[in-house]
Write a protein that binds this DNA or RNA. Structure first.
Length: 139
DNA sequence: GCCAACGTTGGC
DNA sequence: GCCAACGTTGGC
């Protein structure tokens, strides 16, 4: 089981929209970055991910899981781009802000801090546990 | 709205 | 294959 982080712009597609999709989930299409795509290609069904709001809020708001493995991105005909589907699992009791992550020395190596612009990021098991604690949910 | 960081593109 | 120009992202 691996852990990931998905970035969204909440005014385009946020946590509420993701929750509204229920267990069916939603294709995480539109990613046009090789690193991010490679992370999605590496994902397995059941992998867990944080759902992050950039721009508005700048906080991790909940947990999602991968419900369909890598497949062609339906938002383009370009064969280079694949993506997974994700579905909402549960919200954080308390959102974890970017400022908190940056302020915590144990989280200083999170990709959210070191690779700020990468839209799909790997998360380590330690980071997963830490951020879940901060968010008030069971890992 | 600004601007720094950084990924991508295209000319050579 | 290098590197300058350009476009995009995202925090502030």
């Amino acid at each position: 089981m691996a852990y990931w982080l998905f970035k969204s712009e909440p005014d385009v597609w946020g946590w509420d929209a993701q929750v509204a999709k229920g267990d069916v989930g939603e294709e995480w299409g539109g990613v046009r970055n090789y690193q991010a795509r490679n992370h999605m290609r590496a994902m397995k069904i059941g992998d867990q991910g944080f759902f992050y709001h950039s721009n508005i809020g700048k906080e991790i708001v909940g947990i999602v899981e991968v419900c369909a493995e890598s497949h062609p991105d339906s938002t383009t005909d370009d064969a280079r781009w694949d993506c997974v589907d994700i579905r909402a699992v549960r919200p954080f009791k308390r959102p974890v802000t970017l400022a908190e992550v940056k302020a915590d020395p144990r989280l200083k190596d999170m990709a959210l801090v070191t690779s700020m612009r990468l839209s799909v990021q790997p998360v380590t098991a330690e980071e997963w546990k830490m951020v879940c604690e901060l968010g008030g949910v069971e890992p």
